[in-house]
Design a protein around this nucleic acid. Structure first.
Length: 446
DNA sequence: ACCGTCACG
DNA sequence: ACGTACGTGACGGTT
């Protein structure tokens, strides 16, 4: 694969001389070449990235505190009301926030499910998945789900974020961990800036509080479209998947058309939705049972869906099998930039432990390659911004997304740089595409 | 310090 | 026959 790397790749002695080599020598040279792959990863990606992450942390992101203070009042009133309703419905006074007490109220006192699931520590499970299945049984269930999500928003975000504001800068400075996630992703702590809510309207509103540094700046966001699936298409070399990314307007819809053997126009919303779930499942190392559980369908239907998927994209099945095979032989798998994930459990005699490692063998090259891609893009963007003397600042990375405090006068130039550097970070067999948004805050920009 | 839960990609 | 999808971090409750 040809890669557009900046700075210039480190030069090594050539091990590619066309000589007749003994087996031992050949093995030795192959080992050295693999070591050089890791040296390239270190010097050309991780080291240049280090100072970029330091700059992002130092810059920090501005927070609109009044927005959060007002929102805290609204949410606290709402959660207090819901808590009263829950206790009235249950007919007992208890701590709704205690999973232990809640389980006893729901399953011993109210007897909502005679065969309620228990956790490994012996208490009733009251997880979102369990409660969602009980929604029809009693109106208290929905109230508990609402209570939980509101408490989460208040305690982890709305009331917590202002406490992280640095006195000197007036901004929030996360810490990015560069060598934590097994796949090569970054992680973020104190606060975690990579799990700010977005999926529900109430949660999403928190993003309104992430704002530019002043009136001369705007919030600029750029994210990759389906980068992991595109990397799966590239690494598996599956013809149909590559073709879909090159020509279809909507990849999930195109997948549904193949699985259900229908023309694109006849794909229903439900079929598209199932195909989308199947696409995600593939990245995670799908199982018929897991997929069925996710979709609320029978195991038989789950299996049929997967069969249809592999008939549509046979190269993907081959890639998955090959990844597991390679892992069994080497005890590690690799990304496009030769980042490794070691899988010591891949040959375990415990089937459960082994299965986890097999799914890791499938997922890690995909998730890890996506991490490689955005890291390369960050380096490319940083270099371009320096070369062109720009003052805007890269602030936040969220796995497939980059966010900037963008000087308004630099907006057009920044958008051009982001598109060029992100879409051309690596050359693969399908296009990488980027969506961008601009606004007065993270909510508007996304 | 651990568990259960839930926020994100 | 097993028990279910991959990767993280923060919070409150419990031990």
């Amino acid at each position: 694969m040809s890669l557009l790397l900046e700075p210039e790749p480190v030069k090594h002695d050539s091990f590619c001389e066309e000589t007749i080599l003994s087996l031992e020598l050949k093995h030795e040279l192959e080992t050295k070449m693999k070591e050089n792959n890791l040296i390239d990863l270190f010097y050309n990606i991780e080291m240049p990235l280090l100072s970029i992450l330091a700059d992002m942390e130092f810059a920090g992101v501005s927070i609109d505190v009044p927005t959060l203070k007002e929102y805290a009042i609204v949410l606290n009133e709402e959660v207090d009301g819901i808590e009263k309703e829950i206790k009235e419905m249950a007919g007992v006074d208890f701590n709704v926030a205690s999973p232990k007490q809640l389980g006893e109220v729901l399953f011993d006192t109210m007897e909502l499910d005679s065969k309620a699931k228990k956790t490994k520590s012996g208490q009733y499970s009251t997880s979102e998945a369990v409660l969602s299945k009980l929604k029809g049984k009693h109106e208290i269930i929905q109230k508990i789900l609402d209570f939980r999500s509101l408490k989460k928003l208040i305690s982890t975000y709305v009331e917590a974020l202002p406490t992280y504001i640095n006195e000197k800068s007036g901004r929030i400075h996360t810490s990015f961990k560069q060598a934590e996630a097994a796949t090569g992703r970054l992680s973020s702590i104190n606060p975690n800036i990579q799990n700010i809510p977005i999926r529900t309207p109430q949660g999403r509103y928190v993003r309104k509080a992430f704002i530019p540094s002043d009136e001369n700046h705007t919030f600029l966001s750029a994210d990759y479209s389906q980068v992991e699936l595109r990397l799966m298409a590239h690494m598996s070399e599956d013809k149909a998947m590559i073709d879909a990314f090159n020509h279809a307007a909507d990849f999930h819809q195109a997948t549904a058309a193949k699985i259900y053997k229908l023309p694109i126009e006849e794909v229903s919303k439900d079929m598209r939705s199932r195909a989308k779930t199947a696409n995600f499942g593939i990245i995670y190392g799908i199982s018929a049972w897991g997929l069925a559980e996710r979709l609320g369908i029978s195991r038989k239907e789950g299996k049929e869906l997967i069969t249809g998927y592999f008939e549509s994209y046979p190269g993907v099945k081959l890639f998955m099998d090959k990844s597991v095979e390679v892992a069994r032989k080497d005890e590690f798998v690799e990304t496009v930039m030769n980042r490794r994930r070691y899988l010591k459990d891949i040959n375990s005699s415990n089937a459960i432990v082994r299965s986890v490692a097999e799914r890791n063998a499938i997922n890690a090259p995909v998730q890890g390659s996506a991490a490689d891609v955005i890291k390369l893009a960050m380096i490319g963007i940083s270099n371009r911004m320096k070369a062109e003397g720009l003052k805007s600042k890269m602030l936040i990375q969220v796995h497939d997304e980059l966010n900037f405090d963008c000087l308004k006068s630099e907006l057009d130039q920044m958008k051009l740089i982001l598109r060029e550097e992100m879409e051309n970070a690596v050359k693969i067999s399908v296009p990488l595409t980027v969506d961008m948004g601009v606004g007065e805050n993270w909510l508007q920009a996304h």
